[in-house]
């Protein structure tokens, strides 16, 4: 698949103050998830530094368990977050090869751990090293938003998976991540778009519609070609360049 990305200079040309405000609000909506994930990541870094560098002790499962209240805080603070936790790089823990400490909040405010088979020799193994949101951290040390996708391991909810890499002095510890339910996250994304007078769509690098203010484009569908400024689109501008989301505003006569 070829991804044709808009050129920054040309795309910015027709940007009205309204559109700029919309882009800023969309970026804020992303930060509403990424900022607490960064804080979660910092808690993991501090814990790892304290144990392995200051105390010169092996980093084990019990240290990770000590971080769980931080995960619960995150689950409580943002209603759109359906589940969240840490996923660690191989051999970061002294007592386990791999570790996924991920929690789901039920409607009655109980926290339930997600239990997955991590043993690579098992046919049911959940190999998170093959997941795009983990690979972005391992390979490029960059944050990532995967989806929208139906999250099968986590109760088949329609979600985005957000991941924030945690790196200490060049050592990749893993990621702090969250599954964000679309049905609830839309409250953050749709109102900014509805403030625009023109039909508009937020689209990712895969050409997939994230959200729109017009029923011609519905979430999860793929548009045929990546929007470029021209006959159909008046503005195509990155929302958050590093995660590949773009705002595309249609020409008013776009049919």
């Amino acid at each position: 698949m070829t991804v044709v990305k808009p050129t920054g200079g040309r795309a910015q040309a027709g940007l009205t103050p309204e559109m700029a405000a919309c882009v800023a609000e969309l970026a804020q909506a992303l930060e509403a998830i990424f900022t607490p994930l960064q804080q979660l990541g910092q808690a993991l870094s501090a814990c790892w530094i304290g144990t392995t560098i200051v105390d010169r002790q092996p980093f084990t499962t019990s240290e990770i368990a000590g971080l769980q209240p931080r995960v619960f805080e995150l689950l409580d603070s943002e209603p759109a977050v359906d589940s969240a936790g840490y996923v660690l790089a191989e051999n970061i823990l002294a007592d386990r090869a791999r570790c996924l400490d991920w929690w789901h909040r039920s409607d009655d405010h109980h926290y339930q751990p997600l239990i997955l088979e991590l043993d690579l020799t098992s046919p049911d193994c959940y190999d998170y090293y093959t997941m795009d949101w983990f690979r972005a951290g391992v390979d490029e040390g960059r944050r990532f938003v995967s989806g929208p996708l139906i999250d099968l391991p986590c109760a088949a909810v329609y979600v985005f998976t957000f991941s924030q890499p945690v790196v200490v002095e060049g050592t990749f510890l893993g990621i702090a991540g969250a599954d964000v339910a679309l049905s609830r996250y839309e409250d953050h994304l749709v109102p900014p778009l509805l403030d625009l007078t023109e039909p508009a769509v937020v689209i990712n690098d895969e050409r997939r519609v994230i959200v729109s203010n017009d029923s011609r484009w519905t979430t999860g569908e793929k548009v045929r070609t990546f929007p470029v400024v021209g006959r159909d689109w008046q503005v195509v501008v990155p929302v958050a360049g590093d995660i590949g989301w773009h705002l595309a505003v249609a020409q008013t006569n776009h049919a």
């Binding site: 749709v190 109102p191 509805l194 519905t218």
Partner: peptide, 17 residues
């Protein structure tokens, strides 16, 4: 029908400025 319902939902969601 689905698109009518989505547009109606979006109209109800619009913020008043």
């Amino acid at each position: 029908t689905t698109r009518w319902l989505i547009d109606a939902h979006l109209n109800l969601t619009r913020r008043r400025r």
